[in-house]
Amino acid sequence: MDWLDIGFWLLLYAGIPCVLAMHLHRKETKMNRMALPATILVLAGIAGTADAIGTNGSNGPFEVGGSLLYLSIPTVIYLVGACLAIFGGPTPVGPIPKSWRRGGGILMLASISLIIVQSLEPEKLPIQPTIMNEFAITSLLVGISLIGAAGTVIILSMGEKRWIAAITTSALSIGSIALLLVLTSDSNSIDSEIFSNAIDSALKTAIGTVIGVCFALWVAFHLAVLVERGATLPETASPVTENEMELVEKHLKANIGGEHE
């Protein structure tokens, strides 16, 4: 990994959260005023380093961007369809046509079909598959199969007999596993060796990420508790004096205690 690569990934993973935090700052401080120039610098740095790295055949920024775009097309269509299906019908601001729900359902089904075609026969699509296509599509399928199974268990454990939701999530999970099975089986149009490696990598990433993120958050939480433990607390209000206590008791007796004039 050379310096340009380090610069690009550092700007992406450290620069973007940093400028977002600057923008979210509520008070007018120096930090807040620096947010816009810092954002421009970070974005220019990302673009500049990505351009300098270029497309040299290996997996670089442009290849990542291309596969993310490739992956985001069916996902965005699916989410738009889901939003139409969720919000169609009566809403707090008035009724939205119920046919939008049906339209949303059709969009969701169209997106699922697109994912299937992207997985099995990507070369037949007008959008050509990217160099990292197999990593993108296999991670999506592995994720759906794992989270679909977990979602089914969560829905069933809620105990409200939401059978349709449970059946749908389990169908998503089983469907994804079936697609993975087709991708790993020997077929003429699919290179099963490449896809087997990509699925293997995606599964290891899924397990590793869950363990890593949970452990990192646990450590960060305890670190924050450790650091903040010694912090001096701001001065609170002074304790109540005897006179104030007597005054309060007097008022209570007069108003609640039942003393009649």
Binding site: Y78, A82, F135, S139, G143, A202
Partner: peptide, 20 residues
Amino acid sequence: VQWVGLAMSTLIVLFTVLAI
């Protein structure tokens, strides 16, 4: 790419449940 794929799969499952 794999993290984004996993995040998108989470969104797909979550929104499916919400839609139903």
